[in-house]
Design a binder for these strands. Structure first.
Length: 933
DNA sequence: ACGCTCACG
DNA sequence: GACGTACGTGAGCGTA
């Protein structure tokens, strides 16, 4: 061995970088850096393996030269031979992508050669290096268990499986492929590879391929003499697919001629430079590894703080809000300086200011950035003349950078996988920027961090969080834009007023991130945040931007019909009442019903007003009164018209012709989403007349709407978490769950069951999920309270596990102040120790939360995985309605979509949770939502 | 701004 | 023994 070259006696180790990364990623839970939530699990595993590898090598097998080889780009010469090559590869998990650059950084930090070449796969580089080293008379060990590399094994070249720590020589290759290393490509060419999408010969696997190759010697001989094969089907396959097999061979044959711009000698093993290595490890916040490496290198371990240098300042040193004054950027040089700072720091808090609140229409007015406390800036882009003057010129104010220029400069930063973008409700900013061609990643969200930590305790708006956790009162937006009729748009706000407001928002966001990030792990909600909250941002943004097509003409016609009907009913009502009054006013109606007509039904509520709710009116109608019956009819029509047919039309986006709802991720306490502007989660379905509104939700021509919904998901979760054998068995057997309940309770056979009996059992089943009471059930079923209570008692006798679950859940809530779902979502229960009437409510909420919450978790998991699962189909996910997902798909692919989406939904709990009951998904297809549901 | 009513799961 | 009570949402309307 020489220091300048490579030759006899040298031993080169080639480490397959991707294999290390994937192995590390899948072997470890989704770890995140404590200080900022950056996903870091694969990097941690990678470093551990690399260190173990480097420090553990000794004896005769020790390398003299070593390199880690990475893939560089997805397109290689193989795509020219066969465009479909590796086309089936699933998309990288979102939390893995940003870790790739970090593993390269890690390799360099360990002072190991880090090799990648544009347009070439790691396997080809490995092949080239192995050939060169072997030809120079040295030995080679390829550290990988990838079967595609086994063709390289032979004289002077062997492999090492890093997981099993087992050598792979010619014997092991024969064991795997049935042929020696020199014939491996022939077998692979025949057998194909579904992972890499190498076609091979249909119906021929490794076993058959090896048999054939061993019989005929090699692939060419086999193809030439294919006519001699005795089995007719096999013979025909080899004749018909000869060309495809030859292409397959070219795909699997590794290229030993990759151009390399370094010599083998430069790969010589070097000791790590302890300072650089320890700096990297401590920046990653790997405590154990940092200490271990420091010990081995014989140096002092640097302190690993959960907050890296940039966010470390202790409270007394923490600069005050806006300490350095907020900078307003008006030239590109200043912006470049900020960009440099962001790159250096590795993260940035960002906030966009816009002309309105509808992300699909609002224009970008300015962007604010913050890198560390005390340092924030505002970039005004589209402020116009006109504050305090209704007739302002509307001209763009001077002193602002061009939007296009600013976005062009920021785009590489916002899309850089190694730079974390921090936002407060960042889905909003993500959508605004997406409309300008920027796909922001990776992102993290202080609102969602607060939700993961504090759901149930308080809301998660920025002003509230700033006051609670930073003791800072934000500038109210009203001070800038006013309120009510005199309200102006943000673009009309003077720049010198807008800048401190906007920059403050970015700085508050940064500080909230510093506050929340370490709490995620100490409060044990990192997994919930990383798997249930953060990945929802791009998923929902995509659905919201896609929107759903709504037929405005259909709605208009319905509105007209409803208006006619309302007028008719109104006339009838006035006649029955004997006077004209506002039918829509509960107050006036109550006075007519109960004062004027003296019907039974008392006052209610603290306002002293009569209740005229549907319950009350239904009772009166049942007594034979016409007026309440007509009122109920009128209300139904009025509701449909005002809330649906009228309002929905106004929500059709003029640019897209579609309706774009917005989902709040952190709105509901339990993990459910909430849909707003408009709410598409409460479109009528229960009444025939209301359901017709769904006919206005349509697929574009040539497409279909597909709806998939979970069957009885909450009851299935109840059966699982409360561990109720009878219920679990019923779900496993796929029998009618309500009939089964009735049968168990009332000792009647399921066959020929009275529908009323089943209905009662169904009401009880649902009641249990809500924390049932005799009173509630009696109202729901309209039966005497004593009877309802008797049902409940029987139910608990039959299914005693439910009582146990309820008691345990409430006890948990009291002890910890929160409950958790199966998936680790935390829902706080601050009211649980209250006394008085509120206590009952808090109890029921605590009982319900783990059930409703787990169902919400499951559909979130399905949605997060859906994109990759249906990527190959001409389909888009459009809507979520708690247990239902709605897609739009090209007509011909509808069945394929159902198969793929159902698979994802039914397996959504796994692998985190193995439910003891199956999840079942029903599906429907139609030209509109009414048909599909 | 708040309460009532009612649409959904 | 009395007291209230189903769980989780959002929107439109009338009233103060």
């Amino acid at each position: 061995m020489t220091s300048t070259g490579f030759g006899k006696g040298c031993h080169l180790h080639l480490i397959d970088g991707s294999a290390f990364i994937f192995r590390a990623y899948h072997a470890l839970p989704p770890l995140t850096r404590k200080s900022d939530g950056l996903p870091i699990g694969a990097v941690a595993g990678f470093c551990n393996m690399l260190w173990k590898y480097i420090s553990g090598q000794n004896g005769s097998n020790a390398p003299t030269h070593v390199a880690v080889i990475f893939d560089h780009s997805s397109k290689t010469f193989r795509n020219d031979i066969y465009p479909e090559y590796k086309a089936n590869r699933p998309e990288l998990p979102e939390d893995l992508r940003p870790q790739f650059p970090l593993t390269r950084e890690a390799t360099r930090a360990f002072n190991v050669a880090c090799i990648e070449t544009e347009g070439f796969e790691a396997d080809d580089i490995i092949a080239t290096l192995a050939c060169q080293a072997r030809d120079a008379g040295g030995a080679v060990t390829i550290v990988s268990s990838d079967k595609d590399l086994m063709q390289l094994v032979g004289q002077g070249v062997n492999m090492l499986d890093p997981i099993k720590n087992k050598a792979i020589g010619p014997d092991e290759v024969v064991e795997k492929f049935g042929v020696g290393p020199d014939r491996v490509v022939d077998v692979q060419a025949l057998a194909g590879d579904s992972v890499d999408n190498v076609p091979g010969a249909p119906g021929i696997g490794v076993k058959t391929a090896a048999l054939l190759i061993n019989e005929y010697g090699d692939l060419e001989a086999l193809l030439e003499r294919a006519g001699e094969i005795r089995q007719p089907k096999r013979r025909q396959t080899l004749i018909d697919f000869a060309e495809q097999i030859r292409i397959s061979k070219k795909l699997v044959q590794l290229d030993c001629q990759t151009p390399l711009d370094f010599s083998l000698g430069s790969l010589e093993v070097r000791d790590p430079e302890s300072e650089a290595l320890l700096d990297f490890l401590s920046r990653m916040e790997f405590r154990t590894l940092t200490a271990r490496v420091a010990e081995t290198l014989g140096v002092e371990a640097p302190a690993v703080v959960s907050a890296p240098a940039s966010i470390a300042p202790a409270a007394p040193d923490m600069p005050a809000m806006g300490a350095n004054g907020y900078q307003t950027l008006s030239d590109l040089a200043a912006l470049e300086a900020w960009i440099d700072d962001i790159r250096e720091t590795g993260h940035v808090a960002i906030d966009t200011e816009t002309t309105g609140l509808d992300e699909m229409q609002a224009g970008l007015v300015g962007i604010s950035l913050a890198v560390r406390p005390g340092d924030a800036c505002y970039i005004p882009l589209a402020h116009v003349e006109g504050e305090g003057d209704l007739f302002g010129s509307g001209d763009r104010l001077p002193g602002q950078l061009e939007t296009a220029e600013v976005l062009e400069a920021l785009k590489p930063v916002l899309e850089d996988p190694a730079i974390l973008k921090i936002g407060q409700n960042v889905k909003y900013d993500w959508k605004i920027l997406a409309r300008h061609g920027i796909s922001m990643a990776p992102v993290t969200d202080t609102m969602l961090m607060s939700y993961a930590l504090n759901a149930g305790t308080h809301n998660h708006g920025m002003d509230e969080l700033a006051e609670r956790y930073l003791g800072h009162k934000c500038i109210p937006i009203k001070e800038l834009i006013g309120s009510g009729k005199a309200q102006i748009g943000f673009a009309q706000v003077a720049i010198d007023k807008a800048a401190p407001y906007a920059a403050e928002d970015a700085e508050v966001t940064l500080r909230l991130w510093q506050h929340f990030a370490p709490l995620l792990s100490s409060e044990r909600v990192t997994t919930a945040y990383e798997t249930l909250e953060r990945p929802m941002i791009p998923v929902l943004a995509g659905m919201e931007m896609a929107g759903v097509k709504v037929n405005g003409d259909t709605l208009k016609r319905m509105s007209n019909a409803f208006a006619q009907k309302m007028a008719q009913l109104e006339e009838e009502i006035h006649q029955l009442a004997g006077e004209k009054f506002n039918v829509g006013s509960p107050k006036q109606l109550g006075e007519i019903l109960f004062d004027k007509m003296s019907l039974s039904g008392g006052k209610q509520g603290k306002t002293g007003a009569y209740s005229t709710s549907a319950d009350v009116l239904e009772d009166l109608a049942a007594e034979g009164h016409d007026l309440p019956a007509r009122i109920l009819d009128w209300r139904q029509v009025a509701k449909l018209k005002s809330t649906y047919t009228d309002a929905l039309q106004s929500h059709v986006n003029p640019d897209t012709g579609r309706v774009h709802t917005s989902y709040s991720i952190a709105g509901a306490q339990t993990g459910r989403l909430a849909s707003t502007d408009p709410n598409l989660q409460n479109i009528p379905v229960r009444s025939d007349e209301g359901r017709r509104i769904r006919e206005a939700f349509v697929a574009t021509p040539g497409h279909r709407l597909v709806s998939l919904d979970y069957s009885q998901i909450e009851l299935r979760i109840l059966a699982n978490v409360a561990d109720i054998p009878a219920l679990k068995q019923a779900f496993r057997d796929g029998i009618d769950i309500h009939a089964m309940t009735a049968s168990q309770m009332f000792h009647v056979p399921v066959e020929g069951m009275d529908p009323m009996v089943r209905r009662q059992a169904k009401a009880i089943n649902f009641g249990v999920i809500y924390g049932i009471s005799g009173y509630g059930l009696s109202r729901n079923l309209r039966i005497p309270r004593a009877e309802a209570q008797a049902f409940i008692n029987t139910y608990f006798e039959r299914f005693p596990e439910i009582r146990v679950y309820m008691d345990k859940t409430v006890a948990d809530a009291k002890e910890h102040g929160f409950v958790r779902t199966l998936f680790g979502r935390r829902i706080n229960t601050p009211g649980i120790n209250a006394s008085g009437p509120a206590a009952g409510g808090a109890r029921r909420a605590a009982i319900n939360a783990p059930i409703q919450g787990a169902a919400a978790d499951i559909i979130r998991r399905a949605m997060i995985r859906m994109h990759a699962a249906i990527r190959h189909l001409p389909a888009k996910m459009l809507l979520q309605v708690h247990d239902e997902l709605v897609f739009e798909v090209e007509e011909s692919a509808a069945e394929d979509l159902i198969a793929a989406a159902r698979q994802v939904m039914e397996a959504a709990a796994e692998p985190a949770v193995k439910l003891s009951v199956p999840l079942v998904v029903d599906a429907g297809i139609g030209e509109n939502w009414a048909e599909a549901h």
